[in-house]
Write a protein that binds this DNA or RNA. Structure first.
Lengths: 346, 346
DNA sequence: TAGAGCCTCGAAAACGTTGTCATACCAGGG
DNA sequence: CCCTGGTATGACAACGTTTTCGAGGCTCTA
């Protein structure tokens, strides 16, 4: 008995163009022409082909197409964490631009781990994405140089690339933080705390720099006990805030270096409601319901960041060959109350 | 003169296994064996191959691999809007499970448009994703039947499939809404408003059903002017709330059918601060900073939803062939104040 | 009527990988 | 010395498309 050796159904045994061609009684290439809307097919022939396509439930295998054409119509986006609304909005904006270019988007979360960032980026390159947008977790991107030379268009977003020269789209962290702190100073504060992320992270360093610049511009000294930069886990931030807010000369105002810190700060300040004088707060990056809570923030525009990065990427893909460019997206101070509280004591 | 006809650099002219083989002086298949860690290669030969790989900067072309192997190690996720934190968390959970299975995830946002949902899902199928998780925007998914028959594992999440029999992972909208409304009733309310999404949306309908069940369980009548189900755009919701909260017999409590409505309701209620008696509020689905705002909610667990859907998907991919299953994920009432306000007048 | 030119169409190569199978080689046993 | 059996290796087909190129049929003009 000719026992069939279980022919391992690829793709679940889908019909191919060859099958369609056989059924329609035409050549393979004719099917290809119909599927791709290429000219040079009689309406009558086209009809037969379409009929066969419908009958068999044929759908073109884009994997094979990609292999032949050399372009995948796919771009990759490596970010920190899709569950963070900031990145969610950014990703969505990239997706929209990609869609307008007939391109799919693969997202990957690095979880702020440089190793995972690299693994992800290289995996995407192995898939031969046409382009890559990277929100750096690490600070050495030389591993991408061979890929970029090999033709993978690459744009960095939110933070610049490390140790290589590449396109980058950034928020104005320095200017934003400076404006925010100046706002607090204008409302009479002189002892202002800063809580931000590890200064190895470019954005965090820029914001800290903005804080110091604003203080210096106003001729105010900075007591290093007012500055906390490290992990932004709630516990650490809470501890840091507790330290700044106690002692004989507590800070009267806070500048929060990112939205996670802002959220924690809001919680801490709300929690001590009865237990202390009001403390002013300005946060970098907006938070949901910030308007209801009355939190004054330096608003970034994650969608603009994503859109701009994607547009730059597609310009590169369309052949633009200028030198790497750095684009800075402005921030906006949104006053909602928490930043306009006057200092509670001299 | 033999003018070179501009040889159109594919993938930017990357080296292939053939190039590596040539340089190492071995056969093509041997390179393949080394790259894939297959046995049967002398350490000495392997050394030569690795050297060539490094020298040329070779990286395997996964597109070609996919074509040959028939599996893409990619799954697709069609959701409504990645910028919505609910879907962001869900997507992230799916990504983690996929990662554990060595699989990449392609997200696509349907923007709640059934046409776009279909377009996206079919595009993903053309890419030959191994599996698909769909958060329905439309209510007819027969278009996916050929794909599923052809072997694309498919799981629906958050809402069930329309007109086909398929796996689904859902939140307990009925039970959650019933509990939330019962909570308001337990605090003395008798005139309770419901604001939710269009009842064509399964989740919205379930929640409305839960509202009615709770009212009926308590023997309370429902005045249809208390029920608003339609678009959840802020303007519409604001208008609906204004109507319910005015008149001789305004509602004393509100049940918000989803997080967008909750946010709008919080804004509206905060906005009328001085202008009316306090109104109790329970929202379906948590919102960021809900704890600080003191909003009582029926919390869903988007991460559990995503994780469960992904796990079910991979079980299918591993060959599980049971009948389609429906999994329900429980909800949790989180009391934070807004739902415990007593009625302001008889 | 012949030649030119256009249009429709299909055969065959190519894309870069993996699977199948044959070959060459070596050691060991008879 | 031959045969057996295992190991290392490579030649070649296959995956499902797109690309290239040429064949045939038609119309038009001279």
């Amino acid at each position: 008995m000719a026992e069939t050796p279980r022919p391992e159904p690829r793709y679940g045994n889908r019909p191919t163009m060859k099958d369609v061609a056989a059924r329609a009684g035409v050549g393979l290439k004719t099917v290809s022409r119909v599927v791709n809307g290429e000219p040079g097919v009689t309406p009558e022939t086209e009809g037969r082909v379409r009929e066969a396509i419908d009958a068999l439930g044929f759908r073109r295998n884009d994997s094979a197409r990609v292999l032949r054409k050399g372009r995948t119509a796919t771009v990759g986006l490596v970010l920190e964490d899709l569950a963070d609304p900031f990145y969610g909005q950014l990703s969505r904006a990239v997706e929209e631009v990609a869609r307008a270019h007939g391109t799919l988007l693969i997202n990957g979360s690095s979880a702020a781990d440089p190793g995972r960032e690299q693994e992800l980026a290289l995996t995407l390159c192995a898939r031969r994405v046409d382009g890559l947008i990277v929100i750096p977790a690490g600070d050495d991107h030389r591993y991408l140089e061979p890929e970029m030379r090999a033709g993978v268009a690459t744009v960095f977003a939110d933070r610049p690339a490390g140790l290589i020269d590449a396109d980058a789209v950034l928020s104005d962290g320095f200017g934003g933080a400076r404006d925010g702190v100046a706002h607090l100073i204008a409302h009479g504060h002189r002892r202002i705390g800063f809580v931000g992320d590890r200064p190895r992270i470019h954005t965090a360093a820029e914001r800290l720099r903005g804080y110091r610049a604003a203080m210096e511009d106003a001729g105010l000294p900075v007591d290093e006990r007012w500055v906390a930069s490290g992990s932004t886990e709630p516990e650490r931030v809470t501890a840091a805030l507790a330290a700044m807010l106690s002692g004989p000369e507590p800070v009267t105002a806070l500048f929060a270096g990112n939205n996670r810190v802002t959220v924690t700060a809001v919680r801490v300040l709300a929690g001590r409601a009865g237990g202390g004088p009001p403390v002013a707060l300005v946060g970098f990056d907006d938070v949901e319901l910030g308007d209801v809570l009355g939190v004054t923030v330096i608003a970034q525009d994650p969608a603009a960041l994503g859109r701009t990065a994607a547009e730059l990427l597609f310009r590169r893909l369309d052949g633009a060959a200028e030198a790497p460019r750095r684009v800075v997206i402005g921030t906006r101070l949104v006053a909602r109350g928490s930043g306009e509280v006057p200092p509670s004591s001299g």
